[in-house]
Nucleic acid binder design. Structure first.
Lengths: 114, 114
DNA sequence: TCGATATTTCGGCTATCGTCGAATACTCGA
DNA sequence: TCGAGTATTCGACGATAGCCGAAATATCGA
């Protein structure tokens, strides 16, 4: 992942409603949630939420598919992993004890492996 | 970590210069880097960078200490872990294969443990 | 095909963010 | 204590983000 891509993803998440949406979808798993249900869940107007979903989608954090009249949104776990990995890349200057429970994941990013 | 706290941290990181600063400090480890060196590294004016450092500090992502005329900044790894944990909390609806190399870290957050 | 449901797009307004130049604070060595 | 080095604070400006109402698009059931 490149820095501008990461900035875009972080910008997408740096908003109360959008972060709530993303976490909702992360919890929901692959089945996803319909746009209307998301709007009710986070307490946003449908048009405002639609804008938020577009932003999250453009950042690559969520995906969508149509199902009848509804559009189902779901989290993109791979992009999420990439983003987390980018944040901790080459972290802690080779001192694994700093990473704590990041463990195996952190090692994947080049952290603790120097 | 609460949602508003996470939004503040993500907002702090959602900026090219600030993200570059944070990753630089993550790589630097506990020794940290002086403000002036950070400014040179990311190519920002000292006053602009100072604003960015304040924002990162207020979000709890970095810490500072004075050393002579310089002020040394360093990453707060625990806050970073909290933020990552918040993003993946209760993720993937109990299907560990989605998490991949998040492994041990993800389990700590309630993910994959349902 | 028509109306109802579900969602998105558009246009506008306001509020906030990012940047810069200039001025101010803090620390050290002579 | 004075000057140089280091970093922060202040004030102002332009650019961008977020929100809402209204209108448009897409799908389904009768």
């Amino acid at each position: 992942m490149q820095l501008p891509t990461a900035v875009e993803a972080l910008s997408a998440l740096a908003h109360a409603s959008r972060l709530a949406v993303f976490r909702l979808l992360v919890r929901a798993g692959a089945e996803g949630v319909a746009a209307g249900d998301i709007a009710r869940e986070v307490g946003a107007l449908p048009n405002t939420l639609s804008t938020h979903l577009t932003i999250l989608g453009y950042a690559g954090l969520i995906q969508s598919r149509r199902k009848g009249r509804s559009i189902i949104y779901s989290a993109d776990y791979e992009r999420m992993r990439d983003l987390l990995g980018f944040l901790v890349a080459d972290c802690c200057a080779g001192r694994p004890e700093i990473c704590g429970s990041l463990g195996e994941f952190a090692a994947d990013t080049g952290c603790c492996a120097q």
